[in-house]
Amino acid sequence: MINTTKKNGIRVQPIKNGTVIDHIQAGQALNVLKILDIPGTSQGTVSILINAPGKGVRKDVVKIEGRELESKEVDKISLIAPNATINIIRDFDVVQKQRVKIPKFIEEFVRCINPNCISNSREPIISKFYVTNNMPGNIYLRCKYCEKTIDENIADYLH
């Protein structure tokens, strides 16, 4: 039996194949589940650690059995958990580890904060945002259309 999960004194059943999203900013695990539409889409076991002890700071961790993430899902996660790592587990081992990469420009999955924005009307367009990350962990999104920015509670605007 692999004991990676016991390394930090964290007791979670190991997963055979799937994904561990680690170093999620504490408090954001449930938003990560929302982004991944869990439990809606995943059949396998999903375990969640909230406020787990990390290196110095508390963190959340999400472990998903039997699922590897699409790049678009990873992009979404990066907006609310810019320091997260995506670990792909195969046969109980971490075979790939990647820090999420914050995209410079995102399309479609964020709703503009401005109710009077043309992207919130019935025009045939999708929303588009420029992403700025001026300080680590401090992300804000600027609407390509109305130029308004979202700098707090980004998870509320994801869909």
Partner: peptide, 13 residues
């Protein structure tokens, strides 16, 4: 001139 913010940017597309 349009009442919605971002209308001109969209029009340009």
């Amino acid at each position: 001139r349009h009442p919605k913010e971002g209308a001109a940017r969209m029009a340009a597309e």
